[in-house]
Computed example of a mutant assay.
Amino acid sequence: MRIPFTKMHGLGNDFVVLDARDQPLPPIDAAAAAALADRHMGIGCDQLVLLEPSELADFRMRIFNADGSEVGACGNATRAVGLLNGAAARIETLGGLVFASPAHDGIAVEMGRPRFGWDEIPLAYAMDTHAMPVGWEDLDTPIAVNVGNPHAIFFVPEADAVDLARLGPTIEQDPLFPERINVNVATVIARDSIRLRVWERGAGLTRACGTGACATAIAAMRRGLVDRRVTVRLPGGALSIEWRHDDEIIMTGPATESFRGDFDAAAYGLLSFGTAE
């Protein structure tokens, strides 16, 4: 059995998309997702994205990090899937319902409403998530935001100067974060501009992180550092983030289809089930 895939990216954050909306696929587990994501022995990607039928929305999107762990949301993947779908769609995710639609400058995604409660992040124990009384070396007093998955945001004088490759995994796996954490280091450039780098849980340093851009923009707005619409500049490019007065987060940016192909299901431990090759 050969399974078709589409390789896509959003600002360099890349995905392998498997479409099971019309034709069911063998069950995808953590081992298979990690094998497909491997850049030496597999297709290679930051996240594997699986599209399935949904009773709640137009379709369901499941997201697996490169290490095989499943996560609730991915903004860049949602834009990629919105491009692949070709029309406005309501999408079910583990992090909640999102809405993707074509826009003049890419794909616009309604990401839902941010959550700030310590048990909504979640943290291991109660504390003020607006200015957390914790730190790791020079990174301290982060703000925590859940936008479908958890983020800790550190505002620093120069984001590029932070050794995020070293500190990122330490913070990600700290016992304070029972579901691990995405680590964001950000520098506010102007009232409408932020520079951002992200250590993504289960994936590592990434060229772009859509939920990280959303979480960082919301954190900066909560602290009064920026206005309600900002451009977040990541190593892979820029995203526009708006926090509407109805509390909805709108992320707009590009998505790209790189190529299409197929792979041998058996080579990744996926066995056919009642479908002809």
Rank of each mutant, 00 (worst) to 15 (best):
R2W: 05
I3F: 07
T6H: 11
H9D: 11
G10V: 09
L11W: 02
Q23F: 08
I28W: 05
I28K: 03
A30I: 07
A31H: 13
A31I: 09
A31Q: 14
A32T: 15
A33C: 12
A33M: 10
A34R: 14
A37Q: 06
D38V: 00
H40A: 07
I43C: 11
L50D: 04
L56E: 15
F59R: 01
R62I: 02
R62V: 05
D67R: 07
G68Y: 01
G72W: 11
A73M: 15
A73D: 09
L84C: 09
N85M: 00
G86D: 05
I91L: 09
T93Y: 10
V98H: 09
A100K: 06
S101L: 12
S101C: 05
D105C: 08
G106M: 07
G106Y: 05
E110N: 11
M111P: 13
D119T: 07
L123I: 01
P133W: 07
D138H: 15
T141Y: 03
P142Q: 03
A144D: 01
V147E: 06
G148T: 06
N149D: 04
P150F: 14
H151C: 01
H151V: 02
H151N: 06
I153V: 15
A161E: 15
A161V: 02
L164F: 02
A165K: 05
T170D: 14
F177P: 00
P178E: 12
N182S: 02
V183P: 07
A186H: 03
V188P: 09
I189V: 15
R191Q: 12
I194K: 05
R195T: 13
L196V: 11
W199H: 13
L205Q: 15
T211S: 12
G212S: 12
C214F: 01
A220K: 02
R228L: 06
R229T: 15
T231S: 14
A238K: 07
L239T: 03
L239Y: 04
S240V: 06
E242A: 10
W243H: 14
H245C: 09
I249A: 00
I250E: 11
I250C: 09
I250M: 15
M251E: 10
M251T: 03
M251G: 02
M251R: 03
T252L: 04
A255W: 06
R260V: 13
D264E: 15
A265I: 12
A265N: 12
G269N: 12
L271M: 04
T275F: 14
A276Y: 04
